[in-house]
Simulated scan of single mutants.
Amino acid sequence: MTPADLPPVVYVPCFADDDGQVTAVQLRTTADGRTALLAYSALDRLKAGAGDVPWVLLTIEDLQRVHDREPYDVLYMDLRIPEHARAAVTR
């Protein structure tokens, strides 16, 4: 997937403090040990794929800034996380 294939903004699961302020994006570890960032093309897809989680709306440029701070190996779009694995977030 290239940046041209991505929508102009994506919804990304995140962590938030008690006041609802975003503290970090959620990164996951894949079965082969890579670090993954999940992104969703629409809010309903985020809710269907990741559940009722805090989220942040990011541009493509924001995704690069996230990568600069918290390197990830792969970006998955609109991935449906099985119910039993939804809480298994690495950071």
Rank of each mutant, 00 (worst) to 15 (best):
G49I: 08
K47G: 00
I81C: 02
A50I: 08
Q64P: 04
A36Q: 11
P7A: 04
F15V: 02
D73Y: 06
P71Y: 03
E61L: 10
L79Q: 10
P8V: 13
L75M: 13
P71K: 06
V10Q: 00
T35F: 05
V9C: 11
V89P: 08
V22W: 06
L6F: 14
G49A: 04
V56L: 09
Q21M: 07
A42H: 10
L57K: 13
G33W: 10
E83D: 03
T59F: 10
A85V: 03
T23Q: 00
M1N: 00
R86I: 04
G51E: 06
V74F: 09
A4Y: 14
A85W: 06
D44S: 09
P7Y: 02
A24G: 08
D78L: 11
D5W: 03
K47A: 01
G33I: 07
G51Q: 10
L38F: 12
P3S: 07
L75W: 07
T23A: 05
R91A: 08
V53M: 03
Q64C: 04
V53Y: 06
A88C: 05
L27Q: 13
E61R: 15
I60P: 02
T23V: 09
D62K: 09
A87W: 01
L57H: 00
Q26Y: 07
A50T: 02
P71S: 09
L75I: 12
Y11G: 00
A36P: 04
L6Y: 15
A16H: 05
P71L: 07
S41I: 06
I81L: 14
K47F: 13
Q26V: 03
L63K: 06
Y76A: 04
T59Y: 13
L63W: 10
V89A: 05
L57P: 02
Q26P: 04
R28L: 13
L57G: 02
W55A: 09
L46Y: 01
D78K: 01
D32N: 15
E61S: 14
A24T: 03
M77D: 09
G33M: 12
W55T: 01
A88P: 03
Q64K: 13
D17K: 01
L43C: 10
A88Q: 09
R91P: 02
P3R: 12
P13I: 05
D52S: 05
D19H: 13
V74R: 15
A16G: 03
D44C: 10
L63P: 12
G20R: 06
